[in-house]
């Protein structure tokens, strides 16, 4: 195609500080929107998914249906999910993207939390029962703390994949850094804009993953002690 001429165009570098300087406001705003959407999505998903996992843990017959339902939600392509939600919530509202992101993050957190809960040793559970813990006491003081490694794994997976998924929102102009990526493509294939958006996106995923990993280590000091 005739676009081939862009290939060796010296005026279209892969990265340009000039671009970053001139558009620092836009970039910062996109980054902020991206981080906010990610944080909201993961927090809401966790608030829904952890109780769901507890329900599946307590009531065994519900485990299959809960996992199957979140599995089906996970199989539906993000674009289709956005297409289902946007006509009702609004085609220019970030809420549409947020709902899709939450539905996606659900499965990862439910599955890992449930795996964590199921790993609680039977002896520990029996001991807690013997010490007179009730259902909720045991959940809060024994089961959930011991399941923390699983919960954290789920949160980390959900966060990293959510950061990447937010970009799909660019279709309705609410994709955070995805707006930069798609905007650069539409703006005469402006490489510097695309690469800046991509690099920040990957960096954001990496930073959030490291932060969560560090938080997980702080929250589960016993796991470290046992390992060393």
């Amino acid at each position: 195609m005739s676009f081939q001429s862009y290939r060796e165009d010296p005026g279209n570098p892969w990265f340009s500080w000039q671009y970053v300087r001139d558009n620092s406001d836009t970039i910062a705003e996109a980054l902020r929107e991206h981080a906010t959407l990610t944080a909201e999505a993961v927090v809401i998903a966790a608030l829904v998914a952890v109780p769901l996992a507890v329900v599946a843990y307590w009531i065994r017959p519900l485990t299959g249906p809960i996992l199957a339902l979140s599995g089906i939600l996970y199989t539906i392509p993000s674009l289709a999910l956005l297409a289902f939600i946007a006509p009702y919530v609004g085609t220019t509202r970030a809420t549409s993207v947020l709902i899709a992101l939450v539905l996606y993050a659900l499965l990862l957190i439910v599955r890992n939390t449930l795996a964590g809960l199921n790993q609680v040793p039977v002896e520990v559970r029996d001991a807690a029962q013997g010490m007179g813990y009730g259902r909720f006491g045991r959940l809060l003081r024994i089961d959930l703390p011991l399941a923390l490694p699983g919960i954290m794994t789920g949160l980390r997976l959900a966060t990293v994949s959510t950061v990447a998924l937010v970009t799909v929102g660019a279709l309705i102009g609410k994709g955070g850094l995805g707006d930069l990526i798609l905007g650069g493509f539409r703006n005469n294939f402006y490489r510097a804009e695309i690469v800046t958006g991509t690099a920040l996106c990957v960096a954001l995923a990496l930073v959030l993953d490291l932060v969560l990993a560090a938080a997980g280590r702080l929250l589960t000091p016993w796991a470290r002690r046992r390992a060393s």
Partner: peptide, 24 residues
């Protein structure tokens, strides 16, 4: 698999056409 998890799909979709692969 961890690294590819962090790469947005639309980043690759927009970057690759600008390389030697060309459009299409």
């Amino acid at each position: 698999s961890n690294v590819t998890l962090a790469i947005p799909t639309i980043a690759l979709l927009t970057i690759l056409p600008l390389t030697f692969l060309g459009f299409g």
